[in-house]
Write a protein that binds this DNA or RNA. Sequence first.
RNA 1: GCCGCGGUAGUAUAGCCUGGCCUAGUAUGCGGGCCUGUCAAGCCCGUGACCCGGGUUCAAAUCCCGGCCGCGGCGCCA
Length: 444
Amino acid sequence: MASLITLKERVYIAELMEKGEIGKEYVVAGWVDTVRVHGKLVFVVLRDRSGKMQVVAKKNISEDAWRTAKSLTPESVVAVRGVLVESKAALGGRELQAREIVVYSKAEPLPIDIHDHAKTVLAKRLDWRFLDLRNPRNQTIFLVEAEMARAAREWFASNGFVEIFTSKIVGAATEGGAEVFSIVYFDKPAFLAQSPQLYKQMGVIAGFERVYEIGPAFRAEPHHTTRHLTEYTSVDLEMGFIDSYEDVMDAVEGVVRAMVEAAVGRYRSRIEEYFPGAVLELPKKIPRITIREAYKLLEAAGVKVEWGEDLSSEAERKLGEIVEREYGSPIVFVTEYPWNARPFYTMKKPDEPEWTLSFDLLFRGLEIATGGQREHRYEVLRRQIEEKGLNPKNFEWYLAMFRYGAPPHGGAGIGLERVVMQTLGLSNIREARLLPRDPERLTP
RNA sequence: GCCGCGGUAGUAUAGCCUGGCCUAGUAUGCGGGCCUGUCAAGCCCGUGACCCGGGUUCAAAUCCCGGCCGCGGCGCCA
């Protein structure tokens, strides 16, 4: 017999729970969250993307529907037509009394526990990512990510930035390092872009003045840590006609604030429910300290630092704690990094050339963004390439841009997954990436 | 890349140090039974595992070696 249920009739569970009419018939569809079979009574919790509700099937319905109800398995996809009734005992005070049930897809016994993410190790969960994401907690991570990306685009658009799409297949490594993936491009060697850095500078110099890109970046570093991916999403921006790198920090602060506020604004209740360690708001003004001030703070706290060197990951974590305590902020800009810790295109501090006009943004002790003012003077830039031991010949097309009118400019790159991770308080960045790639993992 | 830790049913774990009492325990899942108000239902019965290869030993889940795989720390970075 043909099904009497059509999905056109379908209503979302959240809507039904909020404003469905008691006594009326409705069709809901989704995944079977749990089944509890009693003697002459079956309780089913049905889940769609809006929420969950209880469906009850009693033995006195049609023979067919009763048999179907008894044999439901968790995570099967079903549709139910039933009458909405009040029920003191049911979750949310109402439930659907089933009349008809259609099983579109019967699920086999599950290979992982999807009700509690903590009951299965992350590696196993990732092997079964499509099931792992059925868990509303895990789904929330990607709702937050999507909202952050949307908010970033909106912020960029309303601040005069043009979205660009640069090539991820490149003929030379951006910064001369060895940390790139090699690919075969017909008969030539090529690489996966580790950053759109040089191209976004091109966007500025080409006359767009302000550009941004949200896209993949590839790093061939064999990191075995909870905060590195070999492929991640970079929120990149570059802006011309700036007075100083302070202008770039203002922009980064604007985007990051927009991202966090949008995500919390839209998903506050879900975030509070599933991520008790989440950061729900950023300070009015993100503190800015120079790295030399950071060295002092760290030394005062008994942490060993090397002046003139980059901060170690331990120092960054400690600094995060100190700033939280001293400034009451989970987030801080650290500025004026030493020249030896920065790439060739960074502008040096005019009066103190061993330091640079650059910054990192540390969120709960983890670097989530890096940026600064770029060197736009041809001769100086050329010299800096040599200073870093790189061959200017490999940067000919790039250097040429600075001989035909390049405005003072600067920019930054923000790690999207890291923002998500630190906002929600995740312990592993792989959780914040739909399909994480690390030195070992290439599937799914 | 360097260093450390680990691999036991579908899942998560106990046992390993101090070899035999392991016929490998527990929870959950799965199969079956009872149950008309449960809510990750309850109770009863059942099901299912020592990563691979070699070695030591009377005896190996347990000790040793090699391999494969996983996790984490560091450097570096987003």
